[in-house]
Design a protein around this nucleic acid. Sequence first.
RNA 1: GGGGCCGUAGCUCAACUGGUUAGAGCACUCGACUGUCACUCGAGAGGUUGCGGGUUCGAGCCCCGUCGGCCCCGCCA
Length: 593
Amino acid sequence: MPASPLSTSLRTHPCGSLRAEHTGQTVTIGGWVHRARDLGGLVFLDLRDRAGLVQVSFDPKTASAEVCALAASVGAETVVIVEGVVAERPEAMRNADMSTGAVEVRGSSLRVVGPASTPAIPVARGRNEQLAAEELRLRHRHLDLRREDLQRNLVLRHRLMQRTRRFLADAGFLEIETPILTKPTPEGARDYLVPSRVHPGEFYALPQSPQIYKQLLMVSGYDRYFQIARCFRDEDLRADRQPEFTQIDVEASFVQQDDIVDIAEELIRALWVEGESSFPSGRVRRMSYADAMEGYGIDRPDLRYGLMISDVSGVFRGADFVVTRTALDAGGRVRGIRIPGGAALSRKQVDEIEAVAKSAGAMGLLRLKRVNGVLEGPPAKFLGDGAVDALGLAEGELGLYVAAADHVSHAALDKVRQDVAVRMNLVPAGVNEFVWVTDFPMFERDAVSGALTAMHHPFTSPNPDDVSLLDTEPWKARAVAYDLVLNGTELGGGSIRISDPVVQSKIFGLLGIDDETARTRFGFLLEGLRAGAPPHGGIAFGFDRITMLLAGATSLRDVIAFPKTTAARSMFEGAPSPVSADDLRDLHIKLES
RNA sequence: GGGGCCGUAGCUCAACUGGUUAGAGCACUCGACUGUCACUCGAGAGGUUGCGGGUUCGAGCCCCGUCGGCCCCGCCA
């Protein structure tokens, strides 16, 4: 019976696994020299492996002079194998900060198996010592990945991945791989393209998602599919966006929205348990897209705090105030939020909030507050006596309003709401507010051309109640699409798909995709639908983002072993890079000089 | 495509309004030290101030360009 699953022919135990119960055992351990303390005759090495740190002591009384001299000479990050006896430390010499702090290994032999040059960035840091610049951490990723934080994040990522597989497999889902070399799709994000050597002038694309493949698997009767799928999008990056990312991709047959929502909710619950974060008991609440936009100005509302948006157009209607009258006459509304205690905010603070609203596209913020029962603020003089109550302002409350078209006030009030929540300390710590946002519109209408584009994707099923709208006012039709949102972050989303080829053709038509184009781009899907498709639908979750949230990280780069920079470059191996003229010739590619 | 911030020793940072030989801690090298755990103490070495140009008597500092990183907008069906 091995002492640990990590035991090998070269070591008996991982360094970080040793405890008081091992006292008296002769052990062989291998690890990286985390830190060395040479006291003259006595040498201490802290040895590190993925299980943790353990102190090894070399004493001339129990180790040869040669071993002690070697121990005194090894530098940080050298890999050594040590044989010794586990000894309980005397009370005064224990280290409560180390999980192995009750014991140490009394080294009797020492072998340097991996000599190391002085590390370019430190792995062991003192208290209060800053992390190296991220650029250097990415360039020397092999060193950065030795840090406990990143090791913990990647272990968590592994656990979440295994939990996902176990959960979905137990629920009858089959893990099926789909191609990485796929067909370019002109819609949506820019594709990463791969030139074909065999077919001059033709290209594969890396998948933005396995969407069409998973629908075809439903057509083929696999009933329930999942994949922890790598996806690629050639778009500009953010802290929470990488060009290659991983999603938990799920699709099922003979389902309706609630079937997918139920199973997805249980999956996320299982992952939050695995990640030791809180998941509220009971069902996750649901909110329509329309309600989310009306109350929060965004389709992924942060429900950890109030500050709901309300429509106060009625209070301003008829007021001789040019700002609101212009907006109302143009078909806009006056909407805003009430901030409890906001009357105490300084002019400068409210100016800062207004700057947030302006940067989101609003012309400005109307300010009204209730002080001693009286309405104060620049627009107050245009309003009647009852306005303070009509606005619903309580004593000490500040109302901030945007008079504009909805698309402007949505964006501005969303940003204002978030800013005020942080500013007024209204975001409770450790709270997770999940919400399903449902009933998304089928289409978005281009403000200039009026052209329709798919809000989710062109395979999303229209709401059966809204099918008649497709012929009259398609922009009003709702889709059977749903997003799971946590604290203002989208975790994932999905839809019930179109399983009727006639409906699919109709949607393509509304999107301005003619039959010929539909055939060349999506012919294989249409053919599949015509071959007998069950009702089906699914969902996809951003696995990197979920891991980031559960790890408490602020950047995806901290939960991906080898991430790209914001310029989509890999600092470690230096990709992308030029290729030889021969390779280009083979691929039939000529570079413009 | 656009906006903002940043780049000084291996690492983290300092250097007044543009002014003498660009400093400190850690790491590194050498020496001392038998219970440390961010060991301690002494000495030493370590710099094309990202790169290129300009302004100036004089540039780490100001200006222009460029490279790289980070954050944001656009973009991300």
